[in-house]
C-alpha cells in the first residue's frame, strides 16, 4: 500500500519545525515503525536526514515510542503502542499526520522525539517505597489480598510513554501520576509514605508545567496499558486527605 505522510520535522530543540510530506510504501504485516524504517532507509540512500523517533523494545513495554497519528496518541488502535500498531489497520492511499507529543513539559528534541525527563523527576519526588536493600523481612510476612495486588498491578502497568499527556487537551500528567500513587497506595508496603507521596508527586507535576485534570477521559482512551480514570480519583483522594491531615515534620536530634 502507498501512504501519504505528513511528518513533523524539527532539527533540534531551538529551531522551528514544520510538517514535511513524504510518500511511503508499506506492507500490511509491517509495524508502523517498520514502515518508518523503510522510509528512513530510502531517505538515507538519498542523503537526506532520516526521521528521528524514539523506540527501543518494539514490544509495547519499554514506553520509548509514541507520537500522534492523525491527532490520536499511538494511533487508532486502543491499547496499542505505535511499535505494536500494524499497517493492516490502514489502507492504500491513507493520508497520515505524524506529530510529536506536544506539551510545555515535554520539549521537542528532534522530529518526533521529545524529552520526557519530567516523568522521571515526578517519580524521583516520591514515587517509591523507601526500602533500602537488605532491610526487607520475609516476602510472605505481610499478606496482600489478591484483589489489592491485582489492582495494584493494573496501575503498575504504566509504561511511562507520555500518551496521556499528549492526548490531554490540558497536557496533564494526572493519569501517569495517579498510576504510581495508586500502585503503591494499594499495597501495604506503600502505606507509611502514602500521604507524603501524594503531596510530593502532585507538587512535582505542578512544578513541571503540566496542566490540571478536567476529568474528560482522553488519557484513558489512548493509554496503551488501559490505565483507568478511576486511579485519578484515587490520587485525588490521597492528595486531599494528605493535605487536610498534613502536619509539619519535627526535626529530632540525631535524625537525618
Amino acid at each position: 500500500m502507498k501512504l501519504k505522510l505528513h511528518v513533523w520535522r524539527q532539527k533540534n530543540a531551538a529551531s522551528a519545525g514544520r510538517m514535511v510530506r513524504y510518500e511511503a510504501e508499506a506492507d500490511e504485516h509491517m509495524s508502523f515503525l517498520e514502515m518508518l524504517d523503510v522510509l528512513n532507509e530510502s531517505l538515507i540512500t538519498k542523503g537526506e536526514d532520516p526521521v528521528a523517533f524514539d523506540h527501543d523494545c518494539r514490544e509495547g513495554i519499554c514506553g520509548a515510542c509514541g507520537f500522534m497519528i492523525n491527532g490520536v496518541a499511538h494511533g487508532p488502535m486502543p491499547g496499542t503502542t505505535v511499535c505494536q500498531l500494524h499497517m493492516r489497520h490502514f489502507k492504500d492511499g491513507d493520508e497520515l499526520y505524524l506529530e510529536p507529543w506536544r506539551a510545555a513539559a515535554f520539549p521537542v528534541i528532534k522530529d518526533l522525539i521529545v524529552d520526557r525527563g519530567a516523568f522521571d523527576r515526578i517519580i524521583a519526588a516520591g514515587g517509591y517505597v523507601s526500602a533500602s536493600t537488605g532491610s526487607a523481612q520475609d516476602a510472605n510476612a505481610i499478606l496482600v489480598p489478591k484483589k489489592d495486588a491485582d489492582r495494584a498491578m493494573d496501575s503498575a502497568q504504566c509504561i511511562g510513554c507520555g500518551a496521556c499527556v499528549a492526548a490531554c487537551p490540558n497536557a496533564s500528567a494526572a493519569l501517569f501520576l495517579s498510576a504510581k500513587v495508586s500502585h503503591l497506595g494499594l499495597l501495604p508496603q506503600g502505606q507509611p509514605e502514602r500521604n507524603e507521596r501524594a503531596i510530593k508527586m502532585v507538587a512535582a507535576a505542578n512544578h513541571e508545567l503540566f496542566g490540571g485534570c478536567t476529568n474528560i477521559g482522553e488519557c484513558e482512551a489512548v493509554c496503551p496499558k488501559n490505565i483507568r480514570l478511576e486511579f485519578i480519583a484515587r490520587r485525588n483522594w490521597d492528595f486531599l486527605k494528605a493535605s487536610c491531615t498534613f502536619r509539619e515534620e519535627k526535626a529530632a536530634a540525631g535524625a537525618g
Binding site: 517509591y128 517505597v129 526500602a131 536493600t133 537488605g134 532491610s135 526487607a136 523481612q137 520475609d138 516476602a139 510472605n140 505481610i142 499478606l143 496482600v144 489480598p145 489478591k146 495486588a149 491485582d150 495494584a152 498491578m153 503498575a156 500502585h183 503503591l184 499495597l187 508496603q189 506503600g190
Partner: peptide, 22 residues
C-alpha cells in the same frame, strides 16, 4: 531468597493467592 523479600518490600505487585500469599 533475599531478592524476593527486597522486591516485595519495594512494592513489586507479584501475583498472589486468594489468601494473600505469593
Amino acid at each position: 531468597v533475599n531478592i524476593i523479600d527486597q522486591c516485595v518490600a519495594q512494592g513489586v505487585p507479584f501475583a498472589r493467592e486468594y489468601g494473600g500469599l505469593l
